[in-house]
Amino acid sequence: MQMLIGDKIKSIRELKNYTQEYIADQLGITQAGYSKIEKGKTSLSLDKLEQLALILDLPLENIINFESQKYFNHDSNSEKEQVKNDSGLELVKRLYEDKIILLEKLLGHTDRELKIYKQKYGML
């Protein structure tokens, strides 16, 4: 079963741990409007798709060719399918590495804020 572009974008967004609100803000649209894109209720222009590729930090062709079955299904025996899975695993690996970096940045930001509040209230 072929994934629709909205499903692909949603899967990638979730792997990157981005919220719909974040993506919508980056696109300059409402969260409700962005949700309609993921659900396939609103058509996606090439310009918006290119913007999404920049936001998701992926080449446009990776978004278009994204198929979660290729990345998470390990039952394939053919060599050709294994090559596809290997390239897909690289994409998933990159997405998870990006997610780790994002979470580390968030943790650092939280630590700095905590230190500021401790200083402000004399707890340090």
Rank of each mutant, 00 (worst) to 15 (best):
Q69P: 00
K84Q: 02
N62L: 07
I101S: 04
T30A: 04
G33H: 09
F66K: 07
E104M: 10
Q31Y: 01
D57G: 01
G33F: 03
Y96L: 15
Q51I: 02
N62K: 08
Y22D: 12
V83L: 09
K80H: 10
H74C: 10
I12V: 13
K70I: 04
K39L: 14
G40C: 05
K16T: 04
E97L: 15
E14D: 09
T30K: 05
K70L: 03
E21N: 08
L56D: 03
I64S: 01
L56V: 06
Q31L: 05
F72A: 07
Y34F: 07
K84P: 00
S87W: 03
A32M: 11
L54D: 14
R94M: 11
S78T: 12
H109I: 04
Y96R: 15
P59G: 01
I64D: 04
E61T: 02
S76V: 08
R13F: 07
E50H: 06
K84H: 01
R13N: 09
H109S: 09
I29S: 01
S43V: 13
E61H: 05
G88T: 01
E38D: 01
S76M: 07
K105W: 05
K39R: 14
I29D: 00
S11H: 05
S87P: 04
S68V: 13
E97Y: 07
N77D: 14
L54G: 14
G40F: 04
I64P: 07
I63D: 09
I37L: 15
S78A: 10
Q26G: 00
Y22F: 15
